[in-house]
Nucleic acid binder design. Sequence first.
DNA 1: GTAGTCACTATTTGA
DNA 2: TAGTGACTAC
Length: 758
Amino acid sequence: MQEMELSTNYLDGLNDIQRQAVTTLDGPVMVIAGPGSGKTRVLTFRIAHLLKSGVPPYQILALTFTNKAAREMKERIEKVAGSDAYKVWAGTFHSIFARILRREAHRIGYPNDFSIYDTADSKSLIKGILKSLSLNVKEYNVGAVLSRISSSKSNLITPKLYAANEEFLEHDKMNRRPMLYKIYEMYVQKCKRAGAMDFDDLLLQTFKLLYTNPEGVRDRYQRQFQYLLVDEFQDTNFLQYEILKLFTIYQDSPRNLCIVGDDAQSIYSFRGATIENILQFEHDFPTLQTFKLEQNYRSTSHIVQAANEVISYNKRQIQKKIWTSREDGNKIKLIKTMTDNEEGKRVADLIIEQKNRYSLSNNQIAILYRTNAQSRVFEEHLRRYNIPYRIYGGLSFYQRKEVKDVIAYLRMAVNSKDDEALKRIINYPKRGIGQTTVNKITEVADANELSIWQCLSQIEFSSAAKKKLVDFVSIIRACQDKAAKEDAYKAAVYIVKRSGITELLKAENSIEADNRMDNINALLDGIQQFTEDDVLDDGEDIDNQERTLSNFLQTISLMTDADQDEENPDTVTLLSVHSAKGLEYKSVFVVGCEENLFPSYMSLSSPDQLDEERRLFYVAITRAEEILTLTYANSRYQYGNMRFNDPSRFLEEINDENIEATITGGRKSFAEPKILGNFKKMTPSKMKQLAVDPKDFKPSKKSDIKVGQRILHMKFGEGLVKSIDERSVATISFDALKGSPDKRIMLDYARLQILDEE
DNA sequence: GTAGTCACTATTTGA
DNA sequence: TAGTGACTAC
């Protein structure tokens, strides 16, 4: 390391408690971090401090929940600690464990090339099981079944334990789902047979691997990870905590485990997170040192006070009070309107007013709601005023039908036992293999305990069906062959063509089909960039895995829609309170503050759930830095009916002195609605080999790449960034490709180097 | 095998 | 209201 990097200047910018939390490196540490208290700084500086103290980067394991948090952390470590930072094992629970399992899965009876089933795959699998058991799909609601299986896995309850537990069986009988234990058992069997893991398996199988310790694999990882950090610890479930303990509790362990979290921001109990883990942590690591970060650097005083007032209504919590040295600031605006539609208009009016009065840009403003269904009115009014906006939580690029179809082919090429992928494409494009045939094969496969693919290649079928099946088999064989011999990109291009999807979409000859084709091309571009990225692989950087198709599939299956957008163009953000966690805006609107909506009617019957709603409200209001506006409507349309709700109880929990109330809407009108379209053409890429020598190539960070910059690309050479869209796909005009259309480059994979402006 | 119609339901969501 | 899934008719 360089002398300069060894300086500890970064400690100067921290307050006393933050500094202690950063520099107390040995033994168990718990950091309780209130909203806006500099949690991410502490986490990243702590890693920087570890590196500075001489801990090798690969001995540090830092776990987060979201890709976004992981990315942010990595970028910031790099800023403070420099070159070695990328060797730190930092990532989400799922991605880090998937990474481990890719190396070790064979030790516990899975192929290292296992598929990852997403929620849709899991549901489809359950549907199939229900059908094969001739159970009523209505009584056995697929979502409900999956969440019960998921929570069993998260609590280390195997199908065997489940079937032996009177309480569970009784519970299921009461809910008219007596066969659940059987469904669970079959679900697990079928995943295994398909060489597939669902999201919970990424945790559960990691647990099994470490717990059973084949060939000393646990000892190896225990030795490797000397320092562990966990972000948002209040969101961990039982299983995640058990894994952490396997990593850190053993004979003569230094127990260097640092957890960071805030019990007051625990809003995911519905998916298995337990605050119990924090209490248990104190019990399991009695020598722990606790640091409470209570100074809030984000918000002005009225907002901080209101937050404290609201949360004080929750009984069970770790005692703390956030405070700020900032000025009082604006009082919280409370606005009542007659209807939900008027609420939408008022908010749009206020946005225009605030933009003028405080010269805010659009991306400093957010509208937060409890349920996604509420977004519509706000969209309408923002559109009417021509205010650009962006909605969080839409369909992810990788969830689009055409993209999933292609991915299913790719999955089959990598792991042919992947039944869910097979079922998706066996008759797409249509090749005359109907439901009847599929059912028949499925039955045979089940009876022989084989995957469908294995069955296809072994069993005889009636001659009519047979020809079609043979065709399908030969297509997949050809795809597998290509995948084995060519790089990921070349294989994918071949597979798209061979599958017949290209032809099908061309024949359709509609704008919609063109769009689909564009998306498929964008996917191919993404794979191409992923493939080209293998230059820097030195075996230690956990992001630079081998650029195989299998690893590409893993990467995208762990991505969500939230991962496609960067701090992007100037738009107002619309999002649910849940997805706003961790974000902050100058001005925040929390809308629909009504009983039955926020708190949700689903939570009214249980005190625990009501407390969680309150924490959710706490999260909502602490997103605001300077301006907070709470709105509620006298009446609103819900499920097609007019409903009348009282104002939310949470509003009354805020002291009057922090609030400025305005009743009913004024009627200013702002004219000129005009919608700016922003359509770009996607073009299939032409391969051209224009190498820049790799030695001189220093890729810049994705977030630094802006429109208008001159950049350098390994293959295409110099170019100009024309635009960057909301999926962080950049349109770039390369000098060397004059005459041909601009390239679309996915910033998630592409390595671009920014050239000097001068 | 598929297109069209009817009936039903209805938080929050990461990976 | 809006989206989904099952069922019916061709």
